[in-house]
């Protein structure tokens, strides 16, 4: 009959009304500062820089100041200055490092392109969304030391991705070590062959 749809609708909202008092499962919202909805696995806010050692964040940054992220950033919120000298990186290879690395979070749109492109797994997306400042120019301009977060922190916010990154880095490190070992062996073999081919300059000690 005409009007039965309206009555059905009124019954639905009445059920919602009554249910909202005793059934927390129904609630579509959480009381935010006190309760928090869990963030999704792939939730992202602003970039961070991963460092190996929390005790010395700036000394163990994975970043080698290649400036790929700076060039690719769509809103151009990253500014990097390369160092003049080189320091050993995570794999022990001497690399450049960023003297200045700033991200303007007032400009950053959180697209995550920097994190996708970084070949050194250095820049990753953070999950901190409560960013406030009283000064919109310097307050939201994050410096190198504010951006640097330890690998342990990265593990805590994205366990699966961090584990995968660590495994890859370890494999690369192993490969690099093996390569270095092989190179050293080859070098040693070459040296030995050279030494065998050439007349000995010094007599063997055993002899």
């Amino acid at each position: 009959m005409l009007g039965s749809g309206i009555l059905k609708g009124l019954a639905v909202t009445a059920k919602n009304f009554a249910g909202s008092f005793y059934d927390p499962e129904r609630m579509a919202t959480v009381q935010y500062p006190e309760e928090r909805a869990p963030l999704g696995e792939h939730y992202r806010s602003f970039p961070l820089l991963v460092c190996e050692n929390a005790a010395d964040p700036l000394g163990t940054l994975r970043c080698v100041a290649c400036t790929i992220c700076e060039k690719e950033c769509p809103p151009q919120c990253i500014y990097i200055e390369k160092s003049k000298d080189k320091k050993p990186d995570a794999t022990g290879k001497p690399q450049l490092y960023p003297v200045i690395f700033t991200i303007d979070t007032a400009v950053c749109m959180g697209c995550g392109i920097c994190a996708e492109l970084c070949p050194f797994d250095s820049i990753k997306m953070d999950k901190v969304f409560e960013v406030t400042a009283t000064n919109r120019f310097t307050g939201l301009l994050l410096e190198r030391d504010q951006l640097a977060k330890s690998n342990a922190y990265y593990h805590s916010i994205r366990p699966a991705e961090a584990a995968e990154v660590d495994a890859r880095l370890a494999a690369e490190r192993l490969a690099a070590e093996e390569k270095a070992k092989a190179a050293a062996l080859a070098k040693a073999a070459a040296a030995a062959a050279k030494a065998a081919a050439a007349p000995p300059t010094t007599p063997p000690s055993a002899a």
Partner: peptide
């Protein structure tokens, strides 16, 4: 408040 309750909000 009532509209909230009708829509399962507070």
């Amino acid at each position: 408040k009532l509209l909230g309750r009708l829509q399962n909000r507070r």
